[in-house]
Design a binder for these strands. Structure first.
Lengths: 226, 226
DNA sequence: CGGCAGTTTGATCCCGGTCAAAATATGTGG
DNA sequence: CCACATATTTTGACCGGGATCAAACTGCCG
């Protein structure tokens, strides 16, 4: 495990090489296939995590078994940072949305990280702030917008966060089903399917099984409502 | 301004009397009538606040002027804590939902508060954590539940947070209109009105103009879905 | 080639939004 | 204290977006 992996990431950007080395020496690394649950909502928050590669889906399950995806976490970000918010249980589950590679540390180290490494706290809370802002926006969207606009925005968010340029357009870099999109937007896979079909006919997107490519982001933005 | 006002509040509970005195000496206090905007979404985050009395409504406005209420803040809590999350602008507006009394400090003091007063940071981030959890729940509700359940839960949340026992039941302690409830639940005042009328007929609630009393919380919980 | 996971498409229904209007409080100035 | 203006609430009629139900279709993997 090389220090240069962590050096460019926000939480560690202000640290010296030997500090990063010390942090790495305490880390446990793990790889997981797509669809693996890293931790479950309600579990005792015993570790916190850093995603090195892949995408993590943060979801809650309703009493009657329906999934609701509240957030996607791209490579390079911390996740499962319950201890930073004074919680002793994870408020949601973390599931790999692709093959993933991540590090983790016991929460007992959290306070020493904060104390010993300047900038670590600041940078961490900045990502918390971004996620709060994103959740706030989601709440606003769900309250006021129609399904079509919500799906358009959801795709744009994914594309911005983890899109890969291809010759057709920008592709979402992890496998994603209609069902997944419906869980992000509070609809049904049927509605998502109908909409994507229509958009494909218009040349807005192009999708295969578990794959979505946004061809005309600009028109999608318009659909989502300036 | 007396130190004993702050002593029992979470962010200050671990501090010594003279520390609280020092904090108070830097504070500006202000009173405001109902409906006053304390700060606006997008404003430069120059101060952070502590609500001493009353209730604050946190809201965003959609591009086309519709309001969405994302949170209610009860007396005793910090608000406008953008600096804690590394933001330089407020992500939402704060409007008084009743007559309010609050203190505020310039953000420049934030870091010294954190550095000088043990427990202040921890307690602050704990409330952030609670709000994140609440927003998460809101997102889940909006995704999966029907209007009736959402309104039931919204009322229960308000009643839990700032309910006052009366002989009829538990009363929401600040003036609240059908419109307000609709902005919390992403519906229309018409639907809220119809529902409250029906519930009143069933003896679940009792409401006057700008006033809602929950008479049978238990049955409301059932309506909201275990 | 059979079977499963994911997708598409059609038909139908109903919750809750929208439009419209009246009824009821509250406040204000004369 | 009354008359009028304004804010809030109530109620009815109607309609449409999107959920639900149902069934067929299309890769893809063993």
């Amino acid at each position: 495990m090389d220090e240069s992996l962590l050096a460019p990431l926000p939480p560690f950007s202000l640290l010296k090489r030997e500090q990063i080395r010390a942090i790495l020496d305490h880390a446990v690394s793990r790889r997981a296939d797509v669809g693996i649950t890293v931790f479950n909502e309600g579990d005792a928050a015993e570790r916190f995590f850093l995603l090195l590669d892949g995408t993590i889906r943060v979801a809650k399950v309703t009493p009657d078994g329906e999934q609701v995806t509240s957030l996607h976490i791209p490579a390079g970000q911390l996740f499962g940072i319950a201890p930073a918010l004074g919680r002793d249980a994870y408020p949601a589950s973390a599931i790999s949305a692709s093959e993933v590679l991540f590090l983790s540390w016991p929460v007992s180290l959290w306070h020493s990280f904060i104390a010993d490494y300047p900038g670590f706290a600041t940078e961490t809370y900045k990502t918390v702030g971004e996620r709060v802002a994103e959740m706030n926006t989601r709440i606003m969207e769900m309250s006021t917008q129609h399904v079509e606009q919500r799906i358009a925005r959801a795709l744009l968010r994914l594309v911005k966060q983890s899109g890969k340029r291809t010759d057709e357009g920008i592709e979402i870099s992890f496998p994603i089903t209609r069902q997944d999109v419906s869980e992000m937007t509070g609809t049904t896979l049927h509605t998502v399917s109908r909409l994507l079909s229509a958009w494909e006919k218009d040349g807005l997107v192009s999708s295969k099984r578990k794959k979505i490519v946004v061809c005309d982001a600009h028109r999608l933005v318009v659909l989502g409502g300036a």
